[in-house]
Design a protein around this nucleic acid. Structure first.
Length: 149
DNA sequence: GCCAACGTTGGC
DNA sequence: GCCAACGTTGGC
């Protein structure tokens, strides 16, 4: 069992959207490291911190979990979509995604609050210049955060 | 809107 | 295989 932090822009897809839909295919990831996390390391049942980024109040907004193994991201094959990849084919897909299902919306734990806890100082989401949309979370960090939501 | 940081691309 | 140029991310 692993733990993850996954970023979403709430203007695109928020925790309220996830609470409404129940689950969502995490499509559109076009970064190899983030893809590899989904394809190679995620397992059904892994815990997910749902993080709002690029918004007025960035921070952790809810809890979710990995709901499916990784499978080819359908959007890479759609020439009219924003996520089309001309180098991907059905036989040799380049991008993968899992489905994520809601556990619960929580209070918002703002980025500014995350920074205040020495216990969370090593989180990758706090690292300067970190741009990864999916990052692993240590079990200790997970427990610390969940206990305060 | 700014800008630092980072990943990717492509010429050589 | 290097590396400059470019595009994107994301907090502020």
């Amino acid at each position: 069992m692993r733990y993850w932090l996954m970023k979403s822009e709430p203007s695109e897809y928020s925790i309220d959207d996830l609470a409404r839909d129940g689950f969502v295919p995490w499509y559109g990831v076009r970064n190899y490291q983030a893809r590899n996390f989904m394809r190679d390391q995620m397992r059904v049942g892994d815990g997910v911190l749902f993080y709002h980024s690029t918004c007025a109040e960035p921070g952790i907004a809810g809890l979710a979990e990995v709901a499916t193994p990784a499978y080819p991201d359908a959007t890479q094959f759609d020439p009219d979509g924003n996520y089309f990849d001309p180098k991907a084919t059905e036989d040799t897909p380049r991008w993968f995604n899992v489905d994520v299902k809601v556990v619960r919306k929580t209070r918002l734990m703002p980025l500014s609050e995350i920074r205040e806890y020495p216990e969370l100082a090593n989180m990758r989401v706090l690292a300067k210049g970190n741009r990864l949309s999916i990052t692993p979370v240590d079990p200790d960090e997970w427990r610390f955060i969940v206990g305060r939501l």
